[in-house]
């Protein structure tokens, strides 16, 4: 369960240069598969990118001309400024709230044993294990009942459901590896729980909080299902707006939709580059790992 402090892994593999006996056709197949996948990836991203800059593209390898006009058209047609502002508002609110709710809980889970700990842990695990649509539809029904869905607050609340457990599950192992003796020393010197949190733990926790915040940010901007189920016309995020414009195909030019896709893509790429400065690539994936082994 080394979710946040993983970068140390792999150090012992330095001596692992061996086993070239394994038949080379196998190696060719493996590398061929990787290359094929990369070609698909480049093709998918590249064709969106090329199409968004092309004037007219029909029956040729590349478009006839180059234009940036689709971007200005997409910007005005889809009211992208508003959409991007909404996306950032939702993402910022989700990050702040999930850290505020999640970190204290992960502190207790990391440091304490109490009756019912397993049940609590399971309750935090379930929202991540369930597909968003399964709990998203009952959740949206409840939110609509309390008039919370269809606006910004509904989108934020729905996105918190997988994000708070995510923060808890990534922060718990991080807190576990902070030496509890530091807190005991502070307590002996007369610090109360609040000042232990703000003066002792918070500075030590900053790297972990930063890592899990950026992961939550990436997940929230990319989260389609929950936002889609709870968003109203003025609270759609970028990915939902992209889906809506694709689904209403024919109304807008395909290139205009692609321009929007490129804008979404560049937002995600910026986030990814930032994320990779703080976390290991596997951490973007491995939000749920095995139970810690004894």
């Amino acid at each position: 369960m080394t979710a946040v402090n993983a970068p140390t892994a792999g150090g012992t593999h330095a001596a692992d240069r061996r086993r070239r006996i394994a038949a080379s056709p196998a190696a060719w197949t493996v590398w061929g598969a990787v290359v094929l996948f990369m070609i698909f990836l480049v093709g998918i991203v590249g064709s969106v990118l090329v199409n968004s800059f092309g004037t007219r593209w029909f029956g040729t390898w590349l478009p006839q001309g180059v234009t940036a006009g689709w971007y200005s058209q997409a910007w005005t047609d889809f009211a992208l400024l508003q959409v991007i502002i909404t996306t950032l508002e939702v993402a910022a609110a989700v990050v702040v709230l999930s850290v505020l709710v999640g970190v204290p809980a992960s502190y207790v889970l990391a440091r304490r044993n109490f009756p019912g700990k397993k049940v609590v842990y399971l309750a935090f695990l379930l929202p991540i294990m369930m597909p968003p649509i399964t709990y998203g539809i009952p959740l949206a029904t409840v939110l609509y009942k309390f008039n919370l869905a269809g606006n910004l607050s509904g989108v934020i609340l729905a996105n918190l459901v997988p994000c708070v457990p995510f923060v808890i599950l990534t922060m718990t192992p991080f807190i576990e590896q902070i030496d509890p003796a530091i807190e005991r020393a502070a307590r002996m010197s007369g610090a109360r729980t609040l000042s232990i949190f703000t003066r002792i733990l918070a500075p030590l926790l900053v790297p972990g909080i930063l890592a899990s915040s950026i992961l939550v940010l990436v997940r929230t901007v990319g989260m389609f299902e929950l936002t889609f189920l709870t968003a109203g016309p003025d609270s759609t995020t970028l990915v939902v707006a992209l889906f809506n414009s694709m689904n209403a195909a024919g109304i807008r030019a395909q290139q205009s939709v692609d321009a929007m896709a490129v804008i979404y893509m560049s937002v995600m790429m910026v986030l990814l580059v930032v994320a990779l400065r703080f976390v290991n690539p596997t951490q973007l994936v491995a939000q749920v790992k095995e139970e810690p082994e004894p």
Binding site: M38, F40, L41, G43, I44, V45, G46, S47, V48, N51, F58, G59, W61, V218, G222, F224, V239, L242, F243, M246, V257, D258, A261, Y264, M265, M268, M269, L271, L272, L276, P281, L284, V285
Partner: peptide, 27 residues
């Protein structure tokens, strides 16, 4: 890192790319 890209992009953008790339006039 390259492999993380499609996960980050998500299904909606992948769908848009597949429509272009694998479509009848795609590359």
């Amino acid at each position: 890192t390259l492999l993380v890209i499609p996960i980050t992009l998500g299904t909606v953008l992948t769908a848009e790319g597949l429509l272009n790339f694998l479509g009848p006039a795609g590359w």
